[in-house]
Design a binder for these strands. Sequence first.
DNA 1: AGTACATGTATGTTAAAACATTAATTGTAC
DNA 2: GTACAATTAATGTTTTAACATACATGTACT
Lengths: 149, 149
Amino acid sequence: MQLEKEIVQSKFKNAWQKAVVNIIFTSSWLNSQHSAMLKEFGLSLQQFNILRILRGQHPNPATVRLLTERMLDKMSNASRLVEKLRQKGLVDRDICPSDRRQVHVRITAKGLDLLRRIDAKMDIVEQNFKSITESEAAELNRILDKLRG
Amino acid sequence: MQLEKEIVQSKFKNAWQKAVVNIIFTSSWLNSQHSAMLKEFGLSLQQFNILRILRGQHPNPATVRLLTERMLDKMSNASRLVEKLRQKGLVDRDICPSDRRQVHVRITAKGLDLLRRIDAKMDIVEQNFKSITESEAAELNRILDKLRG
DNA sequence: AGTACATGTATGTTAAAACATTAATTGTAC
DNA sequence: GTACAATTAATGTTTTAACATACATGTACT
């Protein structure tokens, strides 16, 4: 997949501009691979992210606020996503007794089990990314971190 | 903006996994900066992309098919986006006489003028990305291209 | 206690994306 | 020339995002 051929304009003004388009394009490429895999399990990427955050907290609960903060895409839809997951039996929701504004969300055994099955497939998808070496991946991380300042 | 603090899980399994999340996160960060800037001009990111493609073709027209192929996000909404732009007077639409299935889309003088004004602001936004050097940008491009194979 | 203000979550509305289907036109085989 | 496949756009439907607002609860202060 050659960037210049696929995209927008035939020439970039400079390396920075190309990098911007390259990052966006690559992100879209990664997203579509992950989304396609998750679709087999009936999850959207964002639902999957929430489940992973909850697994990270397990056995402690997370509040909706915590979920919102940790989502990649800033958004106000965590409530609705949690409700979707609850309908599938993948999370539990309880009003926090000590602060009745908060809602405690926990991943269920069924949710944990689903994540385990997804992990296996995820490893396969991530093999695709090993066309770069570990030190290239590390360099990529360093540059991206620096880019964001 | 430190990735580990902001995102998902406190630890990554390896450099590749971190790179995947890093790319998606950075892309979202870039998108939001561009979108915010374009909002001042009443354009979405995708509408802007279409205008840029049309400017690249100008004074020749592009078909809807060409636009769809060149969009970063694969999608079937090019027709609707073109209609939105047409309502704003930024593009013209004509049925191609030699093949009446095709639609020829051209950027108008008003569209070109808008793009020129956006270019100036875009340069300012892109100053933000110069926290990495030109050779780092080039290295980033090399690694991303290699990643996608 | 009472008021003002902040916080956490849910909901309503609008806009956009994803996906499938339809409709019109053209090309091809016979 | 007719039947049928292929191409190109547009449209319908469902899902998801973005943004604003409402509502309940909690906190601070008098």
